[in-house]
Design a protein around this nucleic acid. Sequence first.
DNA 1: CCAAAAGTGTTATCGCTACACCCATGA
DNA 2: TCATGGGTGTAGCGATAACACTTTTGG
Lengths: 233, 233
Amino acid sequence: MGEDKLHKYYPHTEKILVAVNCIVFGFEAGQLKLLLLKRNIEPASGKWAIPGGFVNVDESLKTAGRRILNDLTGLEDLYMEQLHAYGDVDRDPGARVISVAFYALIKVNEYTHQSVEEHDAHWIQFSDIPDLIFDHNDMMDNALQHLRTRARYQPIGFHLLPEKFTLPELQKLYEALYQKELDKRNFRKKILSMGFLDKLDDKDKSSRRGAFYYRFNKVKYDELVSKGFNFEV
Amino acid sequence: MGEDKLHKYYPHTEKILVAVNCIVFGFEAGQLKLLLLKRNIEPASGKWAIPGGFVNVDESLKTAGRRILNDLTGLEDLYMEQLHAYGDVDRDPGARVISVAFYALIKVNEYTHQSVEEHDAHWIQFSDIPDLIFDHNDMMDNALQHLRTRARYQPIGFHLLPEKFTLPELQKLYEALYQKELDKRNFRKKILSMGFLDKLDDKDKSSRRGAFYYRFNKVKYDELVSKGFNFEV
DNA sequence: CCAAAAGTGTTATCGCTACACCCATGA
DNA sequence: TCATGGGTGTAGCGATAACACTTTTGG
């Protein structure tokens, strides 16, 4: 993909810096959290920012997003989805930069905690989100909005939980998302009636009685979807 | 926004061509239609394409989208929404180009027909969509999908109809969108019960009996939304 | 007067919501 | 034994879906 081709086909067109930002959600201790970085380049060095970086000419947007997330968390194959392109002329005071935002959901665990801290990144819970640089607060608001909408129609909540999780945990996740308490019986009835959760034999013993573990069964879920099923919480 | 700033803050970063494409929907004679152009530049000159163009460094993505649509249709203040950024490395064989797609809804009438034809653009109905260049068929599929989802929760269908429309027309629009016949009585009951359609005194006399005109009342709609109302067809 | 499209209500079913008590266990 | 959180069923209500006939009027 050289300059020759470029000049041949699209002469006199101006190129622009393209970045990606990744809005990364995690769920831990009943709290929804966002992964933030202290920016270490100018302009706005030292301020809080959503992780991001520039897109190289030889990589796709999604590849760039994965590269950035992998650098930060050490994880591959994250659940990642494109959100929106931010393109106001003056959004970045350093230059004309268009940024494509992705949001990602990760299962927080010890390994990711370590990797994240090595990069001086932090999990911040939603009640404590500081002022962010540029239009990053908008990005975060949009991402949260999107996550809420999405979680209602697709079982993406499972990307935020470990492989094995309990129904009370799953319920707490939805309660954190919607900032609203849900009825235990109705929640269980609905989620179990969908038929894509497998009950396991062992229990999470962090409570007295212990709660049974469940596992998301993607095969069953896909079957249902292909039969015209619509997940809705 | 000069090269100085750029070099100062983000040296050694590669710039990329950024385009926008506009997926324009119209509704005419009971049919959902898409606005397509025969491309007149290389590569792929002469092939069908979704209207688009490059983003200038001194305009936002949305401004670029409006400029392109205005050139084509002569219309300003169209309903326009960003869809997705397409960023595969080889999506455009002419160069590395990232394209941000918007979709737009327009009220087709004589004026727009004239303007569209002057630009050698065409309204193509969905059953007749040809092969498009690059990833433009994907763009179209995504846009249609998005329109369908959106129309179920927001009254955006009204952007496709004239100011005054009849209930049978509105119903035909939804039937075209969902490729499914709807029950007249249930449709009317539901849409009227929402309370944001004003019945007018005159009728559309293109049928024997004639159907009363209605008008979308945005004030009432916004009131309802602010009271936590949720439109759903 | 007839063809064609507009307009109008009722009933059965399903899904959602609200609600209270027993169970298992570690301390 | 008791405090804590896990687990279970039912009844009422509102929304949706199915369904057929009358009205208007131009030709």
